Amino acid sequence: MTDRTAVVHGLEPTNALSVERVRSVRHWNEHLFSFTITRPPSFRFRSGEFVMIGLPGDNGKPLLRAYSIASPAYAEELEFLSIKVPDGPLTSKLQQIVPGDEIFLGKKPTGTLVTDALKPGERLFMLSTGTGLAPFLSLIRDPDVYEMYSSIVVVHSVRRVSDLAFRTTLESYLSGDPLVEDQAAAQFTYVPTVTREEFHTTGRIDALVENGTLFSARIGGAQAFDPATDRIMLCGSTEMIRDFSEYLEGLGFEEGSNAKPGDYVIERAFVG
């Protein structure tokens, strides 16, 4: 894949789509990759939002899907994290992109995985499975998040160790980040867990909550979720989001939105 010369050229922008150029591609394993594209000077987004991106479909028209933006709002490039689906209408093509290729980018980012949709709190937990990590990669590099919460926790559950994209960056507490390095060193916690291979932390996220593994001494506070102090974001598999939403509602958490901030949020555009 990576030795292919760039061939996706000559795309035409529309009223809703700009045409951007692929800057870099990283294949984490055989079914997971991330990539960066150029960012239009006029493109603005809130950390945690998603945008439509795509390539020409078989009929020549833009084939688009919603992707969370993984890069921080101040970055000069836009980064995305994607799975590889061999027969997926878009990902079968997208996984073959190389630097220099062109790609469609929507002009209107949106979403509910944003701090605007949450009430003030003390601890912010971001619970993710698979590529659901993407919006949280943007949020944890936003200086405003560290002003709003005393502890920021990212939990990433995957099947295999090689699925832990961006692991080195997260394990370093964002060392070297130009804007949040100092705050992250004191306030950020990364909790990776693997369900199908040996690793220092194993089991699904609900098991880590139940046995207390998720609530390390570094995080501080109660050894359980508390709607009075905790705010939670969910992104990943439909099953995880459904189960955790029910669990949190049972604890007294209320779902938030841009119109009415609450105690926890999900991205309904992804789960239907």
Rank of each mutant, 00 (worst) to 15 (best):
M1T: 14
T2N: 13
A6Q: 02
H9G: 02
L11I: 03
A16F: 13
V19Q: 02
E20G: 04
V25Q: 05
R26N: 13
H27N: 15
W28A: 04
E30R: 11
E30Y: 12
E30M: 13
F33V: 05
T36P: 01
T36G: 06
P40C: 02
S42Q: 11
F43W: 03
R44T: 10
R46M: 10
R46A: 11
S47D: 02
F50W: 12
G54Y: 00
L55P: 00
P56G: 00
D58P: 08
D58L: 15
N59I: 02
K61R: 13
R65G: 06
R65Y: 05
R65D: 01
A73G: 14
Y74D: 14
E76A: 11
L78C: 06
L78P: 04
F80A: 03
L81S: 04
I83T: 14
K84E: 15
L94Q: 00
Q96T: 10
G100K: 04
G100T: 05
D101N: 07
I103W: 00
I103E: 00
L105S: 02
K107W: 05
K108F: 11
K108H: 15
K108G: 07
T110N: 12
G111Q: 14
L113Q: 01
D116Y: 08
L118H: 00
K119S: 10
P120I: 09
R123W: 09
L124R: 02
F125M: 15
S128D: 09
T129Q: 10
T129F: 10
L133M: 14
L137F: 15
I140G: 02
R141C: 03
D142N: 05
Y146I: 03
E147D: 08
S150L: 12
S151W: 01
I152N: 05
S157A: 15
S162I: 13
S162H: 10
S162G: 12
F166C: 07
R167Q: 13
L170M: 09
S172C: 07
Y173M: 06
L174H: 08
S175H: 08
S175A: 09
P178E: 08
L179C: 06
L179W: 08
E181H: 13
D182N: 09
A185C: 07
Y190E: 01
V191Y: 08
R196E: 11
R196M: 13
R196F: 12
F199D: 14
F199W: 13
F199G: 10
T201E: 14
T201R: 14
T202M: 07
G203Y: 06
I205W: 06
I205R: 05
V209H: 03
E210L: 12
F215D: 07
F215H: 07
A217P: 03
R218P: 02
A222E: 08
P227N: 06
T229M: 05
I232R: 03
I232L: 12
S237M: 13
S237C: 12
T238F: 11
E239Q: 13
F244M: 09
S245G: 15
L248C: 12
E254I: 09
E255H: 07
S257K: 10
S257V: 13
N258W: 02
N258Q: 08
G262C: 12
V265L: 01
V265N: 07
F270K: 10
F270C: 06
V271I: 11
G272D: 15
